[in-house]
């Protein structure tokens, strides 16, 4: 009797699982919105009751209104534009060099022996420690900011590209030899595809750090950019504007990260990995 029941319930759960799958795929991302929504609701209620002063914690509604103001005046767009320009340029410079030197060091043991120890030493120096030096050398203008961002963006791509190349299965090289691949085919058909998961991971981390470097660069001395907007607002105790700036950083950061993850999904669809 028990057994019959158990057997009877089995197909049902299977059917449920089948039905659940596409739904989980389509609405899975909405689960990520639940926690922020609850927090914002509580926040609004607390702010509305007047428990905390508006200069310490402006309510979500106030922040939205600030956003509206900033957008309509064009102030936000101007700051965002210059910030994105700096981050993008610094990222391209740093990640590009990281990719290049990572590939070189990955390929040649000799390059690795010459370069890697120095690079590892530089890597451990904190951003903020070199900031004064960059200001002394390059002044307060764009060059020092972009270089600071590039410095941070360089290492994740360099390390991950290097590791990716060194992690290529030697057995596949043997296949490449048997099939008489030319050297450039060994790079384009074996090494780069095999190292791609690591390279993309490096790019993702590097984008995050570029964004971080941007904030450091803009907070330390600037007359434009989202970081400057935050500093400026702080001086006048415009907490709502500070919040707006922070939210901008969060949103743009998340967007760029999602973009790289989209790339990962497209380029790495051959991978057979656990998806949770």
């Amino acid at each position: 009797m028990m057994k019959a029941e158990a057997a009877g319930s089995l197909p049902k759960t299977n059917a449920e699982a089948v039905r659940k799958k596409p739904g989980r795929k389509r609405y899975g991302w909405m689960k990520g919105l639940l926690l922020p929504a609850v927090i914002i609701a509580i926040w609004q209620v607390i702010g509305g009751l007047g428990v905390v002063s508006a200069t310490v914690l402006p309510t979500p509604v106030t922040i939205v209104l600030t956003f509206k103001e900033l957008i309509l005046s064009g102030e936000l767009f101007g700051h965002l534009q210059i910030s994105i320009y700096r981050a993008a340029l610094g990222f391209l410079l740093g990640a590009g060099l990281g990719l290049m030197i990572g590939i070189l060091a990955g390929f040649s043991k000799r390059t690795e022996l010459y370069l890697d120890p120095s690079l590892q030493m530089l890597r451990t120096v904190p951003h903020l420690a070199v900031t004064p030096l960059f200001i002394l050398w390059f002044g307060f203008d764009e060059v020092s900011k972009i270089l600071l961002i590039a410095l941070g963006a360089f290492f994740p791509v360099y390390i991950n590209t290097f590791n990716g190349i060194r992690g290529v299965d030697a057995k596949l090289f043997e296949v490449a030899r048997v099939l008489e691949f030319k050297w450039h085919q060994q790079i384009s058909k074996v090494i780069l595809p095999a190292a791609l998961p690591n390279i993309l991971l490096g790019i993702r981390l590097s984008l995050g750090i570029a964004w971080l470097g941007l904030v450091v660069a803009e907070l330390m001395g600037s007359s434009s950019g989202v970081g400057y907007m935050i500093m400026d607002a702080r001086q006048f105790s415009q907490t709502n504007k500070v919040f707006a700036g922070i939210i901008i950083f969060a949103v743009v950061g998340k967007l760029t990260d999602s973009f790289v993850r989209l790339l990962e999904r497209k380029l790495l669809k051959w991978r057979n990995s656990y998806e949770g």
Partner: peptide, 16 residues
């Protein structure tokens, strides 16, 4: 090694 001596390994060794 070369394509004149085709080689099949114990494992398939395909490019994933």
């Amino acid at each position: 090694p070369g394509i004149q001596q085709g080689f099949i390994f114990q494992e398939h060794r395909l490019f994933p």
